[in-house]
């Protein structure tokens, strides 16, 4: 057990993956000479060489497709798309090739590809650099989508993703990069399951990604008010761990879904639909959502804060569920 940052955890995971799997290589913009946009791959060009830490031009569609082809050709590429904002330029290759390839070919070809990308707002980067598009990818059958919301997951998700014979998209969160915490020396993360981050009895706070620390903070506040909240980190956004979701809600009988993406057509809507379908008669109150406001994320700090889910909003939503609308 040692105390490290989320960034350091990502770096250790990446270094470990390249050292252990000779077929793995990192490919993306500024992963080599620059040292990685967020310094995650710093020093790796020197350690592993330019064939395995491969800088690319600004060609998201091209190098993502090349990663797909290389995966089909027997390699284990780790494609780094600098941010989810730029993943839109690669969406065709991810959706139309990577996700469909095995099923469409009648099972002849698998695509053992890992895509790492960063997501979320909260650093005053304005509208074009603050997107949360996890739900778009989670919409598509054929890919596994995971979100690293903790230091343990940042350290331990990449290896099982690399072992997966099919495409996996790993979301990382720059808002969490400087977060520090204890990390076990040997981490085996199950990328098929959600994880209860805090046990509770009265309300389930269900979230993923950068909203997890805010949700844990909200749970602390609720505890001080005498409300015992459970925090469930979805962790796997596709396929959703429905069993864990329903087990938590059946226990607490109340659910608040916290999602940094927009409310309309978002992942929170899917989670709520699963709750309604699978645990309707177990509920004591209608489920609630705390999502981003339906505006482009603004630059000014007070506006950005107002646009995103915050602990206060989560607390208020949970209080309404537990104490009734009049609370």
């Amino acid at each position: 057990m040692s105390r490290i940052s989320y960034r350091e955890a990502l770096r250790l995971a990446l270094r470990d993956a390249l050292a252990r799997e000779p077929r793995a290589f990192l490919i993306g913009e500024d992963v080599g000479k620059y040292g990685g946009t967020y310094a995650v791959s710093k020093g790796m060009l020197d350690e592993f060489g330019p064939e395995r830490v491969r800088d690319t031009p600004l060609s998201e569609l091209g190098f993502t497709g090349i990663g797909i082809g290389a995966a089909i050709g027997g390699m284990r590429p780790i494609v780094e798309i600098m941010t989810v904002n730029f993943s839109l330029l690669a969406l065709d290759q991810i959706v139309n090739t990577a996700a469909l390839y095995r099923h469409m070919s009648g099972g002849q070809f698998s695509v053992p590809l890992v895509i790492r990308t960063s997501s979320g707002a909260g650093r005053q980067l304005a509208a074009q650099h603050s997107h949360s598009f996890e739900a778009w990818f989670a919409h598509v059958p054929g890919i596994r989508v995971v979100a690293a919301a903790s230091i343990e997951d940042a350290r331990g998700m990449l290896w099982p993703a690399l072992l997966d014979p099919d495409p996996v998209i790993v979301f990382e969160y720059p808002a969490l990069f400087n977060m520090e915490g204890e990390c076990p020396d040997a981490v085996a993360v199950d990328i098929r399951s959600a994880k209860v981050r805090r046990e509770g009895a009265q309300v389930s706070l269900i979230t993923y990604g950068a909203s997890l620390p805010k949700t844990l903070e909200a749970a602390e506040q609720l505890a001080r008010e005498g409300i015992d909240a459970e925090v469930l980190d979805l962790r796997v956004l596709r396929p959703l761990d429905e069993a864990a979701l329903l087990a938590s809600v059946r226990k607490t009988r109340r659910a608040v879904v916290i999602d940094e993406s927009w409310r309309s057509g978002g992942l929170a809507a899917e989670v709520m639909a699963r709750i309604i379908e699978g645990a309707f008669y177990d509920l004591d109150a209608p489920p609630a959502r705390v999502c981003s406001e339906e505006v482009p994320v603004p630059y000014a700090k007070h506006l950005e804060d107002a646009a995103l889910p915050q602990a206060g909003k989560i607390v208020a939503a949970a209080e309404r569920l537990v104490r009734g609308a009049g609370a």
Partner: peptide, 20 residues
Amino acid sequence: YGGNAIVGGGLPLAAGLALA
């Protein structure tokens, strides 16, 4: 390796196979 119905979709794939 297909059979690709997205115009241009096979080009990056081909480059990736060659890289492998």
